[in-house]
């Protein structure tokens, strides 16, 4: 029965083709460093799921943000777990994505014909850092406030355009409800959309071109 349903779907959706192309593709003999891309993808999915879960209780408004996070941590069943996963998943994702970049760099896997995979990866790394920066403000505690203050001030040191960039970043001259709203929007809509699209291109290229092998001495 189950096999019948599966073959009915396979005939129409081409599941076998997808499986063979995506999962059963040929790869050279590689090492554990080559799992960091899959780990990054898994962490992105984890952040999406836990983030969507958090948005059920979180309120992006300066008057309520802190209290809503406290409510998640102490009032909601398993709220500490969901927020904990999102919090530690974020830190882990920065580490894993960064190591993934280092592996690509030191194995020279960015070379022809994989330049576009590298370039999309660069944007993905920056977008991941952007997720970290925007997400840091959302709990609206002292650490969030001052970290954003410092981050925005760093942006303000850009020669010439700095003060303007800082004001655009904060949505005004100081941290306010406008800042929280735009950080929240960037955190849950803009960056996830960009990251999702770029992961699509990145993975299409990985599947199309295949992964590079571990370089030997003299390569």
């Amino acid at each position: 029965m189950f096999a019948k349903i599966l073959s009915w779907l396979d005939e129409r959706l081409g599941l076998t083709t997808i499986y063979n192309t995506v999962l059963d593709r040929k790869v050279p003999k590689v090492n554990w460093w080559f799992t960091l891309g899959s780990a990054s993808l898994f962490l992105f999915a984890l952040q999406c799921v836990t983030g969507i879960m958090l948005s059920i209780y979180y309120v992006p408004d300066p008057a309520n943000a802190y209290d809503s996070v406290q409510y998640i941590m102490t009032g909601v069943t398993f709220g500490w777990l969901i927020r904990g996963l999102h919090h530690w998943g974020a830190t882990l994702m920065i580490i894993v994505v960064f190591l993934h970049m280092l592996r690509t760099y030191f194995y020279a896997a960015y070379k022809y014909p994989r330049e576009l995979t590298w370039l999309t990866g660069v944007v993905l790394l920056l977008a991941t850092l952007g997720m970290g920066f925007t997400g840091y403000l959302l709990p609206m505690n002292q650490r969030s406030y001052w970290a954003t203050k410092v981050g925005a001030s760093i942006a303000g040191t850009v020669p010439g355009l700095g003060p303007f960039i800082q004001k655009v970043l904060l949505g005004g001259s100081d941290i306010s409800g406008v800042t929280l709203a735009r950080f929240f929007s960037v955190h849950i809509w803009w960056l996830p959309a960009i990251i999702g699209a770029l992961i699509g291109i990145h993975m299409y290229l990985v599947i199309r071109i295949g992964i590079s092998m571990v370089p030997h001495e003299g390569d």
């Binding site: 879960m53 059920i56 009032g75 909601v76 069943t77 398993f78 709220g79 777990l81 969901i82």
Partner: peptide, 13 residues
């Protein structure tokens, strides 16, 4: 189980 508990939490309290 934690996910379901999380989602229905306010109704149980």
């Amino acid at each position: 189980i934690p996910a379901i508990g999380y989602l229905i939490s306010p109704a149980t309290k």
